[in-house]
């Protein structure tokens, strides 16, 4: 049987990878994929804890996270399309309307 800490280390590594992707990548679609990666890393923790504590609630949280991820992906990709239509680019460096 695998100990919980191994699962948590996996979760941490995946989360850190996703986070690094969000920070360093310029392609907005890949940034969104990295966000999905981070969400999944969190899901791993939930599942691990659900197993350890013998409680099914962790699985339900994972279910909700997935639903929200789906909604986020839908809206986010729609935004990417709109952005591409206006700027003809998916490069985040060229999207700086919020510049102070």
């Amino acid at each position: 049987m695998v100990s919980t800490s191994h699962l948590l280390i996996l979760s941490a590594v995946l989360f850190a990878l996703g986070m690094a992707g969000v920070v360093i990548r310029r392609n907005v679609i890949i940034v969104m994929m990295c966000i999905e990666l981070m969400l999944n890393a969190v899901n791993v923790s939930f599942v691990a804890f659900a197993r350890q504590l013998g409680s099914i609630d962790g699985h339900i949280i994972v279910f909700f996270v997935m639903a929200v991820a789906a909604a986020e992906a839908g809206v986010g990709l729609a935004l990417v399309i709109a952005m591409f239509r206006h700027k003809s680019t998916v490069n985040l460096d060229h999207v700086n309307l919020m510049k102070g």
């Binding site: 969000v22 920070v23 360093i24 940034v31 985040l92 919020m98 510049k99 102070g100």
Partner: peptide
């Protein structure tokens, strides 16, 4: 301080990190 607000999302994410 205004220079910190670059409009670059990566930058914002970086500060969160």
């Amino acid at each position: 301080l205004g220079r910190l607000q670059t409009g670059q999302l990566n930058g914002y994410a970086f500060s969160i990190v």
